[in-house]
Design a protein around this nucleic acid. Structure first.
Lengths: 235, 235
DNA sequence: TGAACTATTCTTGTATACACAACATAGGTT
DNA sequence: AACCTATGTTGTGTATACAAGAATAGTTCA
């Protein structure tokens, strides 16, 4: 019965998720001005819940609110993205280290299951599916760390980096590389090799950040006239 | 001229800080119901900015909002606190590792300065002052990591753990121990010994978490009747 | 006497209205 | 002609009003 009645959730929360979705999927690219009235009309609600949603998004860094000047989607400078990937790598490494020491049999099963699901997506050559299952895989590691707070932090940052990570898997062979890295990570965790699990996860993630930065750098070199080299950094 | 006019900041932000202050200083202990009307009257404003402040605090985990049931100060279970200290330790360790590799001369000077200020407070036997300068010391390390995002994350978590850490320094000799650990940390960072800086900082922080947990456990044993052992965890 | 149901009240969630600051544009002055 | 200023417009920030769900207390029936 409880499943039928939708969980009583604040409208502003739902709106927050919707707006977040539009941001991470590129409907609202970085730099976009988020006009409260426009959003309110577009969602068919008043400004109040929109404001609350924006404030919540602002406090997790997904939008930027400047007093009396409204909300905008922040321009993620490549530098800052690097920093975020650097932190993400360390959080994942920590999850891996703890998971290797604390993982329970049931969680081992879940991890293997997620890994095998990834294998299926890889063989099918479906990057979108792989991307999705990849999240399940990583989440399994977060949970196995048996540190709920850490898992929350890792999940939050993972979400925030989602739009940038997504581009990755299109790169030639990235899916295959990712999968073989996963295999080694699973082995280390199941085998209880804490340090190895940590360092492999760190590399696994940091590589994505570096590759992304390379990608951005290449794109900018291609698209920008030479004298624009000093232009303010923007993705 | 610009310095004279106070920075135009949203009222809800100021309120958020005030409420946060009341939470971390124990004016609103865990479990407190935060009635919007009461808060509004107590601050002499309407409910709107109060709500916005609460939503912001909720999104960083400082209050808990249950739909249609209002906001409460979350009961930090000792387990969860342990988890948070575990993450804090790792963030600090990461800051230390990066700082050892990246610190600039000017930042070295700032770090030493902060360290010497702590020494003064220690000699004066002033835990409150030491506590305050200790924050400056750690902040200097965060900044020296040259990862702005990491520094933000570390600062945020540090703030959130503030009320629990504060109790620490009253413990016998803790100030002296803390200071000598600081000295070793400074040496490692200035000396560029990345791994040592990291592991020392990790220990430095994790010890606080453990000591705090011990303290909580002791207090609960003392104050709770034996049959209360199964009671829901609350600090 | 106790339990369950209903009605009342209180609090949250949303909408609307108003005030004020920031930006833009146009006009005047140097 | 260029720059400064004044005014109008747009949009954020706060207050108030209203609606709906949850808690509570009171009443009725078993």
């Amino acid at each position: 019965m409880q499943a039928l009645t939708p969980p009583p959730v604040r409208l502003s929360e739902q709106l927050g998720e919707s707006i977040e979705e539009r941001i991470v999927t590129g409907v609202y690219p970085p730099g976009t001005r988020l006009d409260e009235q426009e959003l309110a009309e577009s969602f068919g609600v008043s400004r109040t819940p929109i404001r609350e949603a924006l404030i919540q998004l602002a406090s997790i860094g997904l939008v930027e609110i400047r007093p009396r000047r409204g909300a905008t989607v922040p321009e993620m400078a490549p530098d800052r993205l690097c920093e975020m990937f650097e932190v993400m790598a360390e959080l994942e490494a920590m999850c891996g280290r703890l998971a290797a020491r604390r993982i329970l049999p049931a969680e081992q099963a879940r991890l293997l299951e997620a890994h095998q699901a990834c294998e299926a997506a890889r063989q099918a050559g479906d990057p979108d599916l792989y991307y999705q299952l990849n999240e399940v895989f990583h989440r399994a590691i977060y949970d196995a760390s048996h540190n709920g707070f850490l898992a929350e932090q890792a999940t939050a940052l993972h979400r925030r980096l989602r739009p940038f990570r997504r581009l990755q898997l299109r790169v030639r062979n990235r899916m295959n590389t990712s999968f073989s890295e996963h295999a080694a990570i699973v082995e280390a965790i199941i085998g209880g090799d804490s340090e190895k699990a940590g360092s492999m996860l760190r590399t696994h993630v940091i590589v994505q950040g570096e590759r992304f930065t390379d990608l951005v750098a290449t794109l900018r070199q291609m698209h920008n006239p030479p004298e624009a080299e000093l232009a303010p950094a923007a993705v």
